[in-house]
Amino acid sequence: MTFRSPFPDETIPDQSVFDFLFGDLSDADARRVALVDGPSGAETTYGALKRQIELLAGALAARGIAPGEVVALHAPNVPAFATVFHGILRAGAAATTVNALYTAQEMQRQLEASHAKLVFTVGPLAETATAAAAGAGLRPESVIVLDGSPGLADLLREGHAAPDVTIDPATRVAAIPYSSGTTGFPKGCS
Rank of each mutant, 00 (worst) to 15 (best):
S5K: 06
D9Y: 13
E10Q: 15
Q15W: 13
V17W: 10
D19C: 11
D24V: 11
D27N: 08
A30D: 01
V33R: 08
V33G: 06
A34P: 05
V36P: 04
G41W: 14
G41T: 12
Y46S: 00
G47T: 13
A48N: 12
A48I: 09
I53V: 11
E54G: 05
L56E: 08
A59V: 12
L60T: 13
G64V: 14
G68C: 02
E69T: 12
A72C: 06
V78M: 01
P79H: 01
A82N: 11
A82E: 03
V84T: 04
F85P: 00
A91L: 04
A93D: 11
A94Y: 15
T96G: 02
T97N: 01
T97F: 01
A100D: 15
L101E: 09
L101N: 10
Q105L: 06
Q105V: 15
M107I: 09
M107S: 07
Q110C: 02
F120Q: 04
G123S: 15
T130D: 05
A133K: 08
G135C: 02
L138A: 09
P140Y: 13
I144Q: 06
G151Y: 14
A153E: 05
H160N: 05
D168M: 05
P169E: 04
R172M: 01
R172E: 01
A174C: 06
A175L: 03
I176E: 00
S179W: 08
S180K: 05
G181I: 03
G181K: 04
P186K: 00
P186M: 01
